[in-house]
Design a protein around this nucleic acid. Structure first.
Length: 495
RNA sequence: GAAGGUGUAGCUCAGCUGGUAGAGCAGCGGACUUUUAAUCCGUUGGUCGUGGGUUCGAUUCCCGCCACCUUCACCA
């Protein structure tokens, strides 16, 4: 038997009183005619009509034979006015048993109070669901049209573990997740309107590929088979391009068995897009246009404030090559340098480079520490060293590079794209180089995928592919400091 | 995995150099039929994250553990 605190004991006692009054504390349904927002917006034309609203009691002010309360539905809060002489003795006795947190139904007529608040004068009140656990009480005051919050429910751990409470009580949190949903549906609209096909590929994979990361491992009993939760969708989506679809995308969870911090959650949402007969220049233009469109649709402007910094998504975004960026921010031209030279330069720059790292890793390290943080405004970083990109196509004119770009905003990567490697001979060599790295102890090296190579041997058209982190994009659009603020139920240690 | 920070009532927080705890809101009782952070009077509620240690005595000092946050590492 769980320990009940004082408030919870009182609530349980109210259940007994309700039983005596023959009231079911958990009703079956309530027919509604309106939502709160609609009533507030259209109150003049709704006058004299009988309205039926339902919602959760968020505040009560009792005054003997009358009371005001605020109820909240999915649209908004609205004040209700309950008077003994309107609802009658029995209903008023019932109303006295109502608590903050109860879900109730109200029938009544709209009116405006002396202080100008659109309210509902109750003729009937009904209990729909009794609250047995006290809600954090968050007081709101309207000042200059804005809702000022007092004693907000702020404990991050409780907010993440009991997101349902966070959502009930913290209005801005509800809005963040509405925006997240709007971002995803706007992205779907954008991609659908261009004729790309939304598809689904396996989450459980016998080999993991398409990115450099450690996987989650699981087991299928009947097949007695080790399976991995996907770290990327890439290799399956390319198989579909081989199959003849010319534009496919997937929006889904990927899983990476890595650390957790403010920009990483073990499961996260990725959008991957593959377009046949196009190259990475096409994809850069698409990303630029898609994000600008999204910003307009979601935030009504190409400009947004992220953590105090103004960010403007308006095209065109600067495009800078990998080596030019390194030169610009470190002063060193790192093209054509040997591994030893790179190691030396990395050390003089105080980067965390060490003996045994290959040139790609060293370059990557210098890039992460010295360059990427500078990319506040949307920026394309293009033409990566081949060592870092085993699935990207060789650059058409630059030796040692691949046609790849990453897109940075607020110093963070939000997208990664290539002209996809479609030469099966070259792809096999790249996999073999990865296998050598795996043998050298690199846990995140790509696995050799024979079936994928077989697919490429049948012929994949020239194709460009994109991966975009939906969580991070949502963070930008909602000014969220942590990825946990845009994921309903972030990964936590069990209580 | 490492370092730093935090953990006190349902919620938001006080609590000094050690003497076993307070406030506001919520709850409960009372007054109040246009209040809105309602107001006024009264009042309940705590194994002070957890387990040890030091001490006559620990919320307070020390150590271990747990959870969360931040930074770092791995990664996107």
């Amino acid at each position: 038997m769980e320990d009940l605190n004082e408030v919870m004991k009182v609530r349980r006692a109210k259940l007994d009183k309700l039983a005596e009054m023959n009231v079911n504390p958990f009703a079956y349904r309530f027919e509604r005619t309106h939502h709160a927002r609609e009533v507030i917006a259209r109150h003049t034309e709704l006058e004299n009509q009988v309205l039926r609203l339902a919602g959760r009691i968020m505040a009560v002010r009792r005054m003997g034979k009358a009371a005001f309360a605020h109820i909240m539905d999915s649209s908004d809060r609205i004040q209700i006015y309950v008077r003994l002489d309107q609802v009658g003795e029995a209903a008023y006795e019932l109303f006295k048993l109502f608590d903050i947190g109860d879900i109730i139904g109200v029938e009544g007529t709209v009116f405006v109070t002396h202080s100008g608040e659109v309210s509902l004068l109750a003729a009937k009140v009904e209990l729909l669901s009794k609250n047995l656990r006290p809600l954090p009480v968050v007081k709101e005051k309207i000042e200059n049209g804005k809702a000022v919050t007092y004693d907000a429910f702020a404990d991050t751990e409780l907010r993440y573990r009991q997101r349902y409470v966070d959502l009930i009580v913290n209005r801005p949190v509800r809005e963040v997740f509405i925006k997240r949903s709007q971002i995803i549906s706007a992205m779907r609209r954008y991609l659908d309107s261009r004729g790309y096909l939304e598809v689904e590929t396996p989450v459980l994979q016998p080999l993991y590929g398409g990115a450099a990361a450690r996987p989650f491992t699981t087991h299928h009993n009947t097949l007695d088979l080790t399976l991995y939760l996907r770290i990327a969708d890439e290799l399956y989506l390319k198989r579909l391009i081989v199959g003849g679809y010319e534009g496919v995308y997937e929006i889904s969870k990927d899983f990476r068995n890595e650390g957790i911090d403010r920009t990483h959650n073990p499961e996260f949402t990725m959008m991957e897009l593959y377009v046949a007969y196009e190259d990475y220049h096409f994809m850069m233009n698409l990303v630029e246009e898609m994000i600008t469109t999204l910003a307009q649709q979601i935030n009504g402007s190409t400009k947004t404030i992220y953590q105090g910094q103004e960010i403007d998504f308006a095209a065109p975004w600067p495009r800078i090559t990998f080596y030019d960026a390194l030169k610009k921010y470190t002063g060193h031209d790192l093209r054509g340098k040997t591994t030893a030279e790179l190691l030396h330069i990395g050390k003089t720059l105080h980067c965390e480079v060490e003996e045994g790292m290959n040139s790609g890793k060293i370059l990557d390290e210098i890039m992460k520490e010295k360059v990427e943080p500078h990319f506040m405004q949307p920026t394309f970083l293009c033409d990566y060293p081949v060592e870092l990109s085993p699935l990207a196509k060789k650059h058409r004119s630059e030796e040692g590079l691949v046609e790849r770009f990453e897109c940075f905003v607020a110093g963070r990567e939000i997208a990664n794209a290539f002209s996809e490697l479609n030469d099966p001979i070259d792809q096999r060599k790249r996999f073999e180089a990865q296998a050598a790295m795996a043998d050298a102890g690199d846990e995140e090296a790509h696995q050799l995928d024979e079936d994928f190579l077989r697919a490429l041997e049948y012929g994949m058209p020239p194709t460009t592919g994109l991966g975009m982190g939906i969580d991070r994009l949502t963070m930008l659009f909602t000014d969220a400091a942590s990825i946990r603020d845009v994921i309903f139920f972030p990964t936590m240690r069990p209580e």
